[in-house]
Structures are given as C-alpha cells and as structure tokens.
C-alpha cells in the first residue's frame, strides 16, 4: 500500500510538478537567450490542462489499442524510474540488488512509447519520426550504459543506488575524478538525446517532419506525451545527481542542488547553441567519439582514477 502511495505521490504528482517547472525554466532560458521575454511561470501547466480538455482524435485505419496504449507505456516508465529514484534517495537502505539496471530498462520505455505511437499512427511522417527515434535509441544506449558502468566500477562494483550514494558520501563525489568527469559528459550528451532536444531532435524535427512521431496525436494523448517529456526533464538530471553528486542527502544538499541546476542549465545552453544533426551524423557521433570517451571512462575507472 505504501508503495502505491509513493508511486502516485512521488512518482506522478511531485515529478509532474517539478518536471513542468523545469520545462518552464527551459523555455524561459531559451527565450532570454534570444532576447525575448518568454512564457509566464504557469505556462506548461496551462498547456497540459488545455490539452486534456481537447478532443481526442483517432485516425482512420489505426490499431486503436496500440495508438492509445503508447503514451501510457511512456508515462508509466517515467513514473517507475522517478519513484525508484525518490525512494532510494530518501532511504538509501531500501535499495535492492540491480535497481540500477531496472532504472536503465525503464528509462527506455518513454522512447518506446514514442516509437510505438509513431508506427501505430498510420502516417508517413510519423513513421519516419518513429524510425529515427529507434535509430537514436540504438545510438545513445551503448555509450550511456558504458558511462553508467564506469560509475558502477568506481563504487566497487555496486549495482545498487544505495551503495553508490553511500560510497560517495564517504569518499567524495564521482564528479571530482577523471573518469567521473568523462562519464558525466557522456551521460549529459545521452540525456540530451533522450529528451529529444536540439542537436538530437531528429525524431521531432519540426521543420521537416512537422511534429514527427507525435503528428497524429491530439488532446489527452498528446498531453500525456508532453507530460512524459517534462517528467523526463526532471528525472534524468535527478539520476545524474545521484550518480555523480551522491543524491540529495543532508550532508551536501547545497552542492547537489547546485549540481542539479547546473545540469539543467548545461542542457539548455547546449540546446540553444547547436544546430540539428542529421540522423546519420547523430549515429556516427554517438558510436564514434562518445563511445570512445565512454570506454576511456571505464578504463580510467578500472585504474581507479
């Protein structure tokens, strides 16, 4: 019963609120960087409420179940990850063996939802968007897992969040070591791709694919997709805070908070200063330099640097 409450309160409500605030921050900073005023604070909330009140259209000739299930799969993935991270951060002893792997698996679900929804939409642009999203997942998943592996090796082969947090509270943050810095950069780039932000927004490419995989979605289904993306915008920096700054523990709350906000600002700045890559360039980028960096981080971690 307690788990269900955690799931609803932390996994959904708190994550949604924080995620929408972070996505407001993203829009505001983008606007300020372009010398604009930007949207008011409650704009993302208003958007979601408005979308919930709109008509839900289902295109002709689609599989209704897949079409409507796809956004739910995505949001459930984000909710599970966020619940796990919150619980692990509050009670590090509640961790279980392999929860890091569970998180890695569930983090793919939002992308999977987009892919399923895109292919189920019966629209050529959506199919192209979905296939690009699929290639992007294949591209960033390898360096992402390698970089997480570097963190696991550093903390003495602990595949538990609790141990990673405990190790960092005793021996200092991973970000202060060479392998930590390198794997941090790798995960930052992968987070950019997971969020579908500008250098890697090939799946949603507004100028060429209209809205990509989400083109046929309207009303509440679109709201769920937007909410999932906003939640991921909070969950991924949170995951990175746990992996590299030792989570939000009382001992170094301020440093972690600083790190958390720094990660978000870095993501937004990268978004605003880069043009979009083509899908083949993105694939080459992730499998080439980024994977090499990730392997370097693993080697450094084995050497104990």
């Amino acid at each position: 019963m307690a788990m269900v409450l955690y799931f609803i309160f932390f996994g959904f409500i708190l994550t949604a609120i924080l995620g929408l605030l972070v996505s407001w921050l993203e829009r505001k900073v983008t606007a300020r960087l372009q010398y604009r005023v930007g949207p008011p604070l409650f704009q993302p909330f208003t958007d979601i409420v408005k979308l919930l009140g709109k008509e839900l259209l289902i295109p002709r000739g689609v599989s209704k179940n897949t079409f409507l299930l796809a956004p739910i799969i995505g949001i459930v993935g984000a909710m599970v990850v966020s619940t796990l991270l919150f619980v692990v951060n509050m009670y590090p002893d509640k961790t279980f063996f392999g929860d890091l792997i569970v998180v890695l698996y569930f983090l793919v679900l939002p992308s999977l939802g987009v892919i399923l929804g895109g292919f189920a939409s019966n629209n050529p642009l959506a199919s192209i968007g979905a296939s690009r999203e699929m290639k992007l997942v294949l591209a960033y998943e390898l360096p992402f897992i390698l970089a997480v592996l570097a963190v696991v090796i550093k903390s003495g082969l602990a595949i538990k969040f609790g141990d990673i947090i405990a190790y960092q509270s005793q021996n200092g943050m991973f970000i202060a070591s060479w392998s930590g810095v390198i794997s941090f950069i790798v995960i930052l780039l992968c987070a950019q791709a997971k969020l579908g932000l500008v250098p890697f927004d090939v799946a949603e490419a507004e100028t060429e694919l209209a809205a990509g995989a989400l083109i046929e979605y309207s009303g509440p289904a679109l709201a769920i997709f937007k909410l999932t993306k906003a939640m991921l915008f909070f969950v991924l920096p949170f995951l990175m805070t746990i992996l590299f700054f030792g989570g939000f523990s009382a001992a170094h709350l301020l440093k972690s908070l600083f790190g958390f906000i720094g990660i978000i600002v870095l993501i937004v700045v990268v978004k605003n200063t880069n043009p979009r890559l083509r899908i083949d360039q993105a694939l080459r980028f992730f499998w080439g330099p980024v994977t090499v960096l990730a392997i370097l981080a693993v080697i450094l971690a084995i050497k104990g640097l």
Binding site: R27, A31, Q34, Y35, R36, V37, G38, P39, P40, Q43, T46, D47, K50, K54, L57, E206, L209, A210, A211, L214, I215, E216, Y217, S218, L222
Partner: peptide, 21 residues
C-alpha cells in the same frame, strides 16, 4: 521575433493541425 514575442501569451506555432487550437 524578439520584438513582438507572442510566446509571452503562450502562443506557439505547431507543425500539426492535430495539436492546434
């Protein structure tokens, strides 16, 4: 554009009619 900036009022251009109001 920065001079008029309708995003102040929450207006954005969307690429698909299914997202539009």
């Amino acid at each position: 554009t920065p001079r008029f900036d309708v995003e102040r009022f929450g207006m954005v251009l969307v690429g698909s009619i299914k997202h539009a109001d």
